[in-house]
Each structure stands twice: as structure tokens, then as C-alpha cells.
Computed example of a mutant assay.
Amino acid sequence: MSGKRRIVFGLLVLFSALHAQPQQNRASQVKQLYESLQFEQAIQLSQRLLRDDTITNPQDLITIHQYAGFSFFNLGRPDSAKKHFLTILSIDPEYEFNPVNTSPKIITFFKKIKEKYQINRDTDRQVAYVRYVFVRDLRPGATWRSALLPGWGQYFKGQKNKGKILSSSFAGGALLTITSYLLERNYHQKYRDATSQSEIQKNYDAYNRWYKARHYAMYFTAAVWTISVLDAIWAPYSSTALTLNWQGDGMLSLRISF
């Protein structure tokens, strides 16, 4: 790897780390307040963070809900703690608290909630603090698919008509490129083998014509590939509509994580 590439790669890694650090620090602040026995402050901070739509990482959300629930439990408010624990289970139904740094009373309380949750999960009778709907971003998957085969990424995003146009255009451009190349080679050989002036000129003109056609076809094919990849990265797409009938004092939160 060259020096410039190392610098660019290092900057990208640094940017990613700096971008992720604030959210991780904010989530861990709730834990720090809980561990310093500042339960009310931990609850207040968790409520502020949960209103922040920029926190989309499931693990960060679990951390916030976990220590908010711990704080409520230690303040003698098990019903409020239960809502946060149910929210954790709605994100990760198999989640377990670390027994090394978690009170046995909380673990026992959580296990009872988890057992009931596993039974009633399908009927959705229990009210969590918040229910999250994590929407999968299709663009990364669409991008590498379009890079392999233009139009495939658009099919992946549900844009079938666009996918057909791009895939057929790429296939047509690739076929024309190959055909032009073969004819170019054929007429180039005929041009080299020709002996009369008329045959030389005739074969040279044909060779030159297919030489230009091959380059035009190559440019067209490359343009289709580029358009397909850029479209997969940037173009918006429609997602499935979600309708929920909600009862109780919970709330629904839609988090889109890219």
C-alpha cells in the first residue's frame, strides 16, 4: 500500500471512530451515572437520549434501557423498570444481563419478565417503554450487486423496471463490445493479408469502422455500469408501509440505521 493510500485509509478509520464515539459515550454516560448511584440523573439522561433519533445502534439502545431499568428498580419502581426490560427483549429476545456486575434481585426480576415475554410475545399483550422498528437499508447490498451485474441492485431494491433497463443495456453494450472486437480483429487480419490496393483500402475501412464501434460500445457499457452503481448508492426507493394497532401507554419508534 502506497503512502498516500495509507494516509487516506487512516483518515477514513479515524473519521469513522470519531463519528461513532459520541453516541457510544452518550449511552455509556447512563451506565456511569447508575454506577455512581445517581439513579434519578441516569433516568433523566436516558429519557433525553431516547428522544434523540440519531441513536440508532441497537446495542446503544439496549445499554440506555438497561441502566434506566436498573435505576428504576433501585428506586423501588419495578413497573417502570419492567417496561425498559421489555423494550430490551423486543430488540434482542435472548438478551441476558451479566451476572458479574448485576444484582441477583434484578436478574431474578428480569428472568420472570423474560419467561412471560417468551410466552406472550406472539399475542403482544405486554407494554414496553418503546417498540423499535429497525428498517434495513438496502443500498449497501444493492451497490455490490450492481457492481457485479448492473441492474441486479435495482432488482434488489424492488425497482424492477429500472433493473430491466440497466441490465439489458449493459448486456447489449457488452455484446456489442465483444462483437465489435471480433470483427475488428477479423478485418485487421484481412487488411494485413490483402495484396491489392482496393482490398487493402476496403479492409482498412472496415477495420477502422469496427475499431471505433468497439470503443463506443466500451464507453457505453462503462457508462451503464457507472450509472447502475451510483443509482444503487444514491437513488431513493420505496419501502414497505408498516401499520400497527397500538394500545397502552407505550410508544412506537422508527429507527433507520445506515
Results as ranks from 00 to 15, higher is better:
Thr179Asp: 13
Tyr181Lys: 14
Leu149Ile: 08
Gly173His: 08
Gln154Phe: 03
Trp152Glu: 10
Phe156Ile: 03
Leu148Trp: 00
Ala174Gln: 13
Leu149Arg: 06
Ile165Ser: 09
Gly158Ile: 05
Leu166Val: 04
Ser180Lys: 13
Ala171Met: 10
Ile178Thr: 14
Tyr155Leu: 09
Tyr181Leu: 15
Trp152Ala: 15
Ser169Val: 04
Leu166Gln: 10
Lys162Thr: 08
Gly153Tyr: 01
Tyr187Pro: 03
Phe156Tyr: 15
Arg185Val: 04
Ser168Pro: 11
Tyr187Phe: 14
Tyr155Asn: 05
Arg185Lys: 12
Ser180Pro: 14
Ser180Val: 07
Leu148Thr: 06
Trp152Arg: 02
Phe156Arg: 02
Gly173Glu: 01
Tyr187Leu: 12
Lys164Asp: 00
Gln159Pro: 03
Gly151Glu: 00
Leu149Met: 11
Arg185Gln: 08
Lys162Val: 04
Leu183Gly: 10
Trp152Val: 12
Ala171Arg: 06
Asn186Asp: 01
Gly158Tyr: 01
Gly163Tyr: 09
Ser146Arg: 11
Ala171Gly: 08
Gly153Ile: 02
Phe156Leu: 09
Ala174Met: 14
Ser167Glu: 01
Lys157Ala: 14
Ser180Gln: 06
Lys160Ser: 08
Tyr181Glu: 15
Thr179His: 07
Leu183Gln: 08
Leu176Phe: 07
Ser146Tyr: 00
Leu183Tyr: 09
Gly163Asn: 09
Arg185Tyr: 00
Lys160Pro: 00
Thr177Leu: 13
Lys162Pro: 00
Lys164Cys: 00
Tyr155Met: 09
Lys157Trp: 00
Gly173Thr: 07
Asn186Phe: 11
Trp152Ile: 06
Leu148Gln: 03
Lys160Cys: 05
Ala147Ile: 06
Leu175Asp: 10
Ala171Thr: 13
Gly151Pro: 14
Leu176Pro: 04
Lys160His: 04
Gly158Asn: 06
Ala147Met: 06
Asn186Met: 12
Lys164Gly: 00
Trp152Thr: 13
Arg185Ile: 02
Gly172Cys: 14
Gly153Trp: 01
Ala174Leu: 15
Lys164Met: 03
Leu175Ala: 15
Ser167Ile: 05
Glu184Lys: 06
Leu183Ala: 05
Lys160Trp: 02
Ile165Arg: 11
Lys164Ser: 00
Gly153Phe: 01
Lys164Phe: 02
Glu184Ile: 02
Asn161Ile: 06
Gly172Val: 10
Leu148Ser: 12
Asn186Lys: 15
Leu176Lys: 15
Leu183Lys: 14
Glu184Gln: 12
Thr177Val: 05
